[in-house]
Design a protein around this nucleic acid. Structure first.
Lengths: 200, 200
DNA sequence: GTCTATAGTGCGATAGAC
DNA sequence: GTCTATCGCACTATAGAC
């Protein structure tokens, strides 16, 4: 028999979510989380750089499905279509069964600005990675960043909808409608002609 | 003569920026900042909720020019045009003389993820306030959020350009071009029709 | 203005797996 | 022997309570 139980990381994440939901983020100490998982505080910090990080998927696995989606888009696709493919591809990972978990997790995050900060950083990092992937496909700046950021915005807005009480549509479906909404936004705007002298 | 020098808050901000630039954010303690400003650690925390906050403008004054811009937009303006008016209105506060300061500050932020988190939270808060202002003008969701977030994205991308080495255009000018770029993005995309091609 | 909890770090020791 | 995951302990700075 092993000296320690395997899956320490997963155990810490599960226990942390429970404790945060029960008593709140601030009133749960790292020591308590570690003890509840049968580990010590020091081990917690070996797995997670800080207390907040236990609620988030680490960068590589989180971004992978999005980057795979970029790679899967046809070479002739427009920048925004490429990003849309990426966002929609990754939507599979938010299957319907996952919704209750996502809701509980988001309730905790919504109640704590410091957790919102971390979430925003993760999404900003995703946008950066997507922009870099577009640049490797020959898209120049600032188009690459603009397309990547817009795609992440669509994801963010759609995800909030998906989590909302009573919502039953799939994330995929909501995202398609949000992308359509984004297109209509700029069509009905004069923003692209604000400087009347120059037109595409 | 006063018992203490006035402008404690401003002094703390100036001193903090200097020290962060000289030795880095992590290697500067709050005690050091306070001492350099002739104050105590306790006073620092009465002015700023945490160590990071000393580098940021507090919420109300930061958002005010943007919200004033929304109010100044003609009632018949489209959601995105309303937001564009807001973003362009606030650009006045980033005058050319301010660019060296902005560059120094951004150098510090770019080197520290915890500061990026705070910056992202401030911008997310701005987007929320702008979306709320649109809703008060009768714009419904998800259009309001989508327009607000897109506007903030334009600001973010433009601001990064503005402080780039060698850049000489005004922020206002860069933002106009970026808004145009956003319009072109969605025009050239099929994103709004994506469900026609991929639907199950 | 003082006092304290807790986050987070550095370094070393330990105990298995291989 | 090496490698990896854990623990133990001493320590500092932040941040909040009183």
């Amino acid at each position: 028999m092993a000296r320690w139980e395997p899956g320490a990381r997963t155990r810490l994440q599960a226990v942390a979510l429970e404790l945060f939901a029960a008593r709140g983020f601030d009133d749960t100490t790292v020591t308590e989380i570690a003890q509840a998982a049968g580990l010590t505080e020091r081990t917690f910090f070996r797995h997670f750089a800080d207390k907040r990080e236990v609620l988030f998927t680490s960068r590589e696995p989180f971004e992978q499905p999005y980057l795979a989606g970029v790679a899967a888009a046809p070479p002739e696709a427009s920048p925004l279509d490429t990003i849309a493919t990426a966002i929609l591809n990754a939507a599979d990972f938010f299957a319907l069964e996952r919704r209750p978990y996502s809701r509980q997790r988001q309730t905790i995050i919504d109640a704590h600005p410091e957790l919102q900060e971390r979430e925003l950083l993760k999404l900003a990092s995703l946008a950066n990675s997507l922009a870099a992937a577009l640049r490797e496909r020959g898209i120049t700046e600032p188009t690459a960043t603009l397309a990547a950021e817009s795609g992440v915005t669509v994801f963010r807005v759609s995800f909030a909808q998906w989590i909302a009480a009573g919502e039953e549509r799939s994330l995929d479906q909501i995202e398609r409608e949000t992308f359509r909404g984004l297109g209509m936004l700029t069509t009905s705007a004069n923003a692209s002609r604000i400087d009347v002298t120059v037109t595409p």
